[in-house]
Structures are given as C-alpha cells and as structure tokens.
C-alpha cells in the first residue's frame, strides 16, 4: 500500500519537475517549483525524517520560492 503511495508521489515529483522546465511563464514555474518542494517534503515526512521535512517546507517551498518570485518581478516574466 505504502509502496503504491510512494510511486504516486514520485510520479507527481517527476511531473512537477517536467512542468517547471516546460512552463514558459516564469511566475507559474516558480509556483510549480514550490509545489515540487511540498511534495518532496511529504515524501521525507513519510520516511521518518520530520526535521528535514520541516526544513524543506520552510526553505524550499517558502523562502526559495519567494526569492524566485522577487527575481521574476525584478527581471522579466516571460521566457523566450
């Protein structure tokens, strides 16, 4: 059962990673990257590592995403 759930989570991770590099809108890509971090955080919580899951949620999904958003706001939003 949990094996199947792992497979679903890994599938979602890979789908998010592909979506991040396929999306032309950098704002949307940043938000998808935050989703990617949250799924990764869930994976680690299920592995018995709450410390790393907390860090990933705070740093990966929170601060890194905000920094990406600021950078997108200060530069250009569309990717050619």
């Amino acid at each position: 059962m949990s094996r199947a759930f792992d497979l679903v989570l890994y599938g979602l991770l890979i789908a998010c990673a592909l979506a991040v590099i396929r999306t032309k809108d950098l704002l949307a890509a940043s938000i998808i990257f935050s989703t990617y971090s949250l799924i990764l955080c869930l994976v680690w919580q299920l592995r018995g590592s709450p410390d790393v899951a907390l860090t990933e949620a705070a740093v990966g999904a929170g601060v890194t995403t905000v920094l990406f958003l600021v950078a997108v706001a200060r530069t250009s939003r569309r990717e050619r």
């Binding site: 410390d51 907390l54 860090t55 929170g62 601060v63």
Partner: peptide, 14 residues
C-alpha cells in the same frame, strides 16, 4: 522535538 534553530529561524524570516 523535530525542528531546531534553522527551521524556526527560517519560519520567522518567512
């Protein structure tokens, strides 16, 4: 408990 200096600090920063 889970968590620690860096996690808490990052949450305050966020």
């Amino acid at each position: 408990t889970p968590g620690g200096g860096f996690q808490g600090g990052t949450i305050i920063g966020a």
